[in-house]
Design a protein around this nucleic acid. Sequence first.
DNA 1: TTGTAAGCGTTATCAA
DNA 2: TTGATAACGCTTACAA
Lengths: 344, 344
Amino acid sequence: MRGTTIRDVARRAGVSIATVSRVQRGSAPVADDTRDRVAAAIEALRYVPNRLGRGLAERRHRAMGIVFPDLSGPYFSEVIGGFETAATDDDHGVMVLSTHGREAAADRVRDLASRVDGLLILGRTVPDEVIRDLHEAGRPIVLLARPPVGDTDAVRAENRATAARLALHLIDVHGHRRIAFLGDPDSSPDGAERWDGFVAAHRSRGLAGPDGPIRSLYRQAEGYAAARLALMAVDAREPPTALFCGNDEIALGTYRAATELHRRVGHDLAITGWDDIPTARYLAPALTTVRQPMRELGLWAARALFARIHGGGGPPRHEVLPTQVVLRASCGCATTPMQEEPER
Amino acid sequence: MRGTTIRDVARRAGVSIATVSRVQRGSAPVADDTRDRVAAAIEALRYVPNRLGRGLAERRHRAMGIVFPDLSGPYFSEVIGGFETAATDDDHGVMVLSTHGREAAADRVRDLASRVDGLLILGRTVPDEVIRDLHEAGRPIVLLARPPVGDTDAVRAENRATAARLALHLIDVHGHRRIAFLGDPDSSPDGAERWDGFVAAHRSRGLAGPDGPIRSLYRQAEGYAAARLALMAVDAREPPTALFCGNDEIALGTYRAATELHRRVGHDLAITGWDDIPTARYLAPALTTVRQPMRELGLWAARALFARIHGGGGPPRHEVLPTQVVLRASCGCATTPMQEEPER
DNA sequence: TTGTAAGCGTTATCAA
DNA sequence: TTGATAACGCTTACAA
């Protein structure tokens, strides 16, 4: 019942299993009438080759794995979507593993590695040691939004220069002098680089160094809390006139805090985000942010893995994809009519 | 290099491969000193059993598959997250396949089916015929947010009664008489049921049947466009005073349209959504919506698949998980302080 | 053009 | 308690 095998097909077509295999994958010439008979048998028996048998013989899984911290939020969805598209188009399956801070993550990653031909690892999900082990064991690995470990391949989006450019926009164009940074430079390389660029912008204008970052996880709830903290100005200092948020979700949270504290976003309070998630343009006012090529990150990673799986060696590939400031109304710029927003 | 096998370990430990296997999986008693020698060899060689070999012998993949239309939006992320959690906890891998309207979807689903022990299929991603074939071939399948095909297992969230309750809230509590439905009853069973409940609410109050739905895909851009259409009231009729949106993303789009058309959400325009995505509570005003147990849907599906894989037969299981109206300010109710929002 | 047979790396049955 | 050895389902030399 469960499992017509190549032998059943061979028997029915009156040929050897080798011939069935040849017909099935077109790997060698087969006489027309033989082919027809085999094809008919395959059709009649609804034969689908067993992937385990095939994989064992071919010594490959035809599958790739992806490790990410958590599926929530648009960023990971997009990256994974890009990865999945590229992998599927190349006839590979995609196995996912979410670590969400679990302790057993390392074991699970090793397990995943034994199920696939190549691995994409996002951010700080996996201890360096595990990555090093797998890499040294010869397993194709690409790191995303994370510095390379040894000579692994890695891809990330540009952060520092764009963060500086965005901060300078607030300083030069809109005249802000007290800008708070909401995020956590320590929690991810991306965050650290954005903070660096933010600080560099202040330096380059000879401004007093900005206050230390207001720590916030990259989620709405934490952004809301951080914004309240920043805007309430418990100490003597005046509250900031602008909030530079580590990502769009933090920015989303700050909108609510701003409303509650009677600050008008885009007028007496500037807010910027990062990622350009789909919601950003639909907020009122629309959110000024930075567009990251999220799908492209996933696509690049998948292609790099293919190159390793098929092509083999070569020097490590490191790629930095460009990012782009998207000015909308939340920083004080004129409102962009919805019609002029490019499709996405 | 790539691939220390069970034979390498056996040779090194001076035992047979059978004994290595026994030690490895604890499937049969092994003398203490033998066990130690084998364990040492495994450790020294960093031996990891090949999953293809193991799978072939065990005749199972220890993996489950999930088919969804698109990764974008919080709904699928959450469902998949729940599914992944349950599967991973039970030592199963998870393979994902996004159909996003691709033509070749059917073939890809069949391919996925050959890589896993069970399949979760979301919504209208796969033709009935393919589902029927796979089910009849004895492959464990669970359908989610989709009516069963034949006697497959299926799980969904309640729609009709809750939609009616929400519509009655707008009618009875806030006195609305012209409510527009934004969504597409034809595109998904969920949408159809919400529309049914919406209509039923009108009937039960003896109101004139509501206008036909304003067609909108379940995304922000389409919600924005649909809302403009609804509110501009090109024909002679007065525009609606409330928008009943098929999901939160549509609702998000309507906020922007409302702002542009100078309607104040929660005051002269009521808006409701569906799903209670994380952003819903951070909008200003916060969005009245319906909470779906998205993670639980995924969890239930994974458990049902396990039951089929391990336990085997039995009658089809159909589950309907409860949903819950969440009143916030966008329908005109009093604003809930952020502090009183339960964590999620 | 086709068939035979040797792997691929496990698990599990039978003997010893 | 251990070892041979037969599956598991497929691909692919090598022969014919």
